[in-house]
């Protein structure tokens, strides 16, 4: 279980996260929605250790990980497919996937996971020798997710996986996210596409300029008037 307690984050003097708290239980899909600049990406970056919070605690299974390195967090089962994909453009698809398993030593299990990623994303298998930077946007997104799965995470962060994708691909990505979840991976999902995210999420939090203003089950928030007005287009 991941518990975020009163996290404050500043960029210089700008107060970006204002004491936010939330939890992600094992096995859930939790989504974080909110307008541009609300602080969603910052939240994920703080939990995976790329950004140091000014105060507050992050607990993973009851252990305080607020001060540990990003590397140690990966070891403990956190994996983060960042905003904008951030694949390694001048490496092949295969090399990208292998880097996802950078901290693992169990060669045979890595090979199994690689096979699973290829089964999930056959296009990556076809393109395994191709430089990742030459993939299409959708393929890059699949690579980013595949790479994040290669660490065999217990909890997976996805930051706007549907960004820039054609509608049918958006649907496919969400199906895949659901499927990854049913095979046992907890998911923390950040999305602009609130209606899709709320459909697959067990629970959701709404972030507004650095504060959590609403929370509930996916179904509850879909019915909420505020949400309908602000994020679901009426």
């Amino acid at each position: 279980m991941l518990e975020i307690k009163n996290i404050d984050v500043h960029y210089g003097v700008i107060h970006v996260l204002k004491g936010i708290s939330f939890t992600v239980n094992d096995g859930e899909i939790v989504t974080l929605i909110g307008a541009n600049g609300a602080g969603k990406t910052t939240t994920l970056r703080t939990i995976s250790g790329l950004k140091k919070p000014t105060s507050g605690t992050i607990l993973l299974d009851g252990e305080d990980i607020t001060q540990v390195s990003p590397r140690e967090r990966v070891k403990r089962g956190i994996s983060h497919a960042p905003e904008g994909r951030r694949i390694f453009p001048d490496m092949t698809v295969l090399e990208n996937l292998e880097l996802g398993a950078y901290l693992r030593k169990d060669k045979e299990e890595i090979a199994k996971d690689l096979k699973k990623v290829y089964e999930r994303f056959p296009i990556l298998y076809d393109r395994k020798k191709q430089l990742a930077g030459t993939l299409s946007g959708g393929e890059q997104q699949m690579l980013a997710i595949g790479r994040a799965l290669m660490s065999r995470p217990r909890i997976l962060f996805l930051d706007e996986p549907s960004m820039g994708l054609a509608p049918f691909l958006v649907q496919e990505i969400f199906n895949i996210i659901k499927d990854i979840n049913t095979t046992g991976t907890t998911i923390l999902l950040v999305e602009q596409n609130a209606s899709m995210a709320l459909q697959i999420a067990h629970r959701a939090y709404v972030l507004e300029t650095g504060s959590i203003v609403l929370s509930g089950t996916g179904a509850e928030l879909m019915q909420s008037d505020e949400i309908k007005k602000a994020y679901l287009g009426g």
Binding site: P70, V74, K75, M91
Partner: peptide, 17 residues
Amino acid sequence: KAMRAVSMDRDAAELMG
């Protein structure tokens, strides 16, 4: 491989551990 990863994208490299 780590060297190449860090030179392409330091944050992403950190996320790989």
